[in-house]
């Protein structure tokens, strides 16, 4: 039964990925990377929510609390929570800069704004270097999850198949694939989190018993004990609140602008030769205000 459900969900996600490309020329680079900057607020919401959930949500976070104590749990939920206030202020600027410079990625923005190829390449390589351990953790978590399903396939095979499927999404539909799939993913994960939470609390006989059981496995899972655990939690929350929202900005470029944005875009083109100290300062003004 579990195998049938699992296979059905994977198939459904592949269908959603393929349908996403229908009627679109995904071979155009702007369409492929940022969907022609056409996504609505609702789709952006699902993409933004989808960025939160990874295999770490289901496997890494609970495992981290058992292994390292409360500091890990508080760090994990704390940095993701604070990433959104940072994003609230940063994302509109990044979006406007993307529109202004025709950027599809964060390094494109740096290239456009500072005119430095070196900065662009450095940023791109930094992102790439950061994503390698991240991807490795995802595959490790995936092996744990698939192992629990009891398919009996080797970790290497499971990883290769998962990578091939994820690659197929992107090849066929560009950014529209993860956008479409994020709706399915968000709904499934939200359901899973609620169901697992309710099931765990009722099986343990109340929320306080859930924490009681955790304390038996690791006495430090209820409180942040020790100065080092506290320092780790506090500094990592602040650092990653900024890092998370920067690393996950690519979806911001897919957003659709309003009338004001179209005007600003023309305005920026007309005044392209005027040095602008800060892109947001000019672009933030209301329509008609001019630079």
């Amino acid at each position: 039964m579990a195998t049938v459900v699992f296979a059905a969900i994977i198939l459904l996600s592949l269908v959603l990925a393929l349908l996403a490309a229908r009627g679109r020329d995904v071979l155009q680079i702007e369409e492929y990377l940022v969907a022609g900057r056409s996504f609505s607020g609702v789709l952006l919401f699902f993409l933004a929510v989808g960025e939160i959930y990874s295999i770490g949500t289901m496997v890494g976070l609970p495992g981290g609390i058992y292994a390292e104590g409360a500091g890990y749990g508080i760090w994990f939920v704390g940095y993701i929570l604070l990433a959104y206030p940072v994003g609230y202020f940063l994302a509109p600027l990044v979006w406007r800069a993307g529109e202004r410079y025709g950027a599809s990625t964060f390094p494109d923005v740096l290239k456009g704004h500072y005119g430095s190829r070196l900065l662009e390449v450095t940023a791109a390589l930094t992102f790439f270097a950061y994503l390698i351990p991240w991807a490795q953790l995802q595959f490790t978590g995936l092996q744990v999850a698939l192992g629990a399903l009891g398919f009996g396939v080797s970790p290497t095979t499971a990883t290769a198949v998962a990578a091939a499927i994820a690659f197929a999404y992107i090849i066929f539909s560009g950014v529209r694939a993860p956008a479409n799939i994020s709706i399915l993913k968000d709904i499934l994960l939200f359901g899973a989190i609620v169901i697992v939470g309710v099931a765990a609390a009722s099986a343990a006989g109340g929320i306080s018993n859930v924490f009681g059981s955790a304390e038996q496995l690791n006495p430090s899972s209820l409180r942040i004990e020790g100065g080092q655990a506290m320092t780790f939690a506090l500094t990592t929350i602040v650092f990653q609140a900024f890092g998370f929202i920067t690393l996950t900005t690519p979806f911001i470029f897919t957003g659709r602008g309003g009338h004001g944005e179209a005007h600003v875009h023309r305005d920026a083109a007309v005044h392209a030769d005027v040095p602008v100290p800060h892109p947001g300062r000019v672009l933030r003004r209301k329509r008609g205000a001019g630079p």
Binding site: G71, G78, L81, L82, M230, L234, V238
Partner: peptide, 13 residues
């Protein structure tokens, strides 16, 4: 930021 970071620092133990 103050509430979350400060709150965790004060209430963490």
């Amino acid at each position: 930021f103050v509430a979350v970071v400060g709150g965790v620092a004060v209430l963490g133990r």
